[in-house]
Design a protein around this nucleic acid. Structure first.
Lengths: 216, 216
DNA sequence: GTCTATAATCAGATAGAC
DNA sequence: GTCTATCTGATTATAGAC
């Protein structure tokens, strides 16, 4: 059977939103790409905002459940094991070649960077984020809650820039590294993030003197 | 004297683009905010694309020249000193309370994340980026060029997410950390980034076995 | 340099036929 | 569920007056 027209609309919207952002896409645009009438889009989703939300939450639920599953299997994990379990489902979905998941990863970058969607982002990813912060604190007992949050947020900043495959790294490495080769990006990202978080923990006990003099 | 109307247009455009992205802003919108006629906007900038480019390049030139100046003063710096010099001008501009610079930082996040502006980003920040990669390799001789590029790109991912002040960290830390307190974010960011880059260097010699099994 | 007027197109949302 | 038609208003870009 064909996938339903509702799914076709979600797929088209996902693709277009990921390429041109919320405001760069019109409802007509979505309808045309999905090859359905405009009325059907508003029948299913009422407004453009609802459509965007539904696009985001659809795969967020899949991602969250996979992440929870992997995290629940970890017993007293190191930071590296923790981050690997966090990245692994996303990596698997993207590396499967799914056009939808690759579009979703770009959308994810838009979501975390735009304050208009902070609420939606918190609803979609907040629960697993809090679980990650707790787990970071267990893996690295010397860290404070504040620094664990900071470490997690930095990891997210790296993750979305890597999974969004913007081509920045291709450019600066003269093609030696491809941003589309997500699989080989995971291991460096895990090591970078784990070492970074550890550096945040250490700093609080030892090097708590500010490196930067504040003169403003 | 009042600042020129051309500058008022650039300021208005910067503010609006940073809040709603390229497609979320209309030329009329810019004209109204700048309190000038619509025709004057197209007289000075012809098209919306040119306006966006000019907004980006205006402060990029200021930022680049300050960064180059600080970098040129460093003699055989550690990774921490290198990153601190890289962040410091941006921190100073943002912490000065300048509304324009804070808007610009959000715009910077949009720029690095959207593949439509990869060319513009490379033109605006590419030269200093290459200098940073060279400096990273000097500070950490064990690292390959590819991994130095990767480390730099990760640092940029963290930097834009921090300077964009999206409020993500406020939310997850229950207000214990404010994303708007950019000054106190620098020192952790420096330590996180430096430790992360070192972990990339080490991994190439020692732990080169992949942490993730590739099954796709 | 500055602004008004307008052309040609496209936007989101709704009403209603099938 | 599906689509056509349409309302109302906004969009970029241009032409031309001052």
């Amino acid at each position: 059977m064909n996938r339903s027209k509702k799914d076709r609309i979600l797929d088209a919207a996902e693709q277009l939103f990921s390429e041109r952002g919320f405001d760069g896409v019109s409802m007509r645009n979505v309808a045309d790409t999905a090859e359905v009438g405009l009325g059907l889009v508003t029948y299913h989703f009422t407004t453009k905002d609802v459509l965007f939300e539904d696009v985001v939450t659809r795969r967020a639920e899949v991602l969250n459940s996979e992440r929870r599953k992997l995290l629940s299997e970890l017993d007293n994990p190191s930071l590296e094991e923790l981050l690997e379990a966090f990245f692994e489902p996303y990596r698997r979905f993207i590396a499967s070649g799914s056009k939808g998941w690759r579009a979703y990863a770009r959308l994810h970058a838009i979501l975390t960077q735009d304050s208009r969607w902070t609420d939606l982002a918190a609803r979609s990813f907040g629960a697993v984020a809090l679980e990650m912060v707790e787990r970071i604190m267990m893996a690295e007992p010397a860290i404070s809650r504040g620094e664990a949050v900071r470490g997690y947020v930095h990891v997210i900043g790296i993750m979305v820039s890597v999974f969004a495959e913007t081509g920045l790294i291709d450019r600066f490495s003269d093609g030696a590294i491809s941003s589309r080769d997500v699989a080989t990006s995971i291991s460096p990202m895990v090591r970078f993030g784990a070492a970074g978080i550890r550096a945040l923990a250490i700093s609080e006990t030892a090097a708590s003197a500010p490196l930067v003099t504040l003169n403003s």
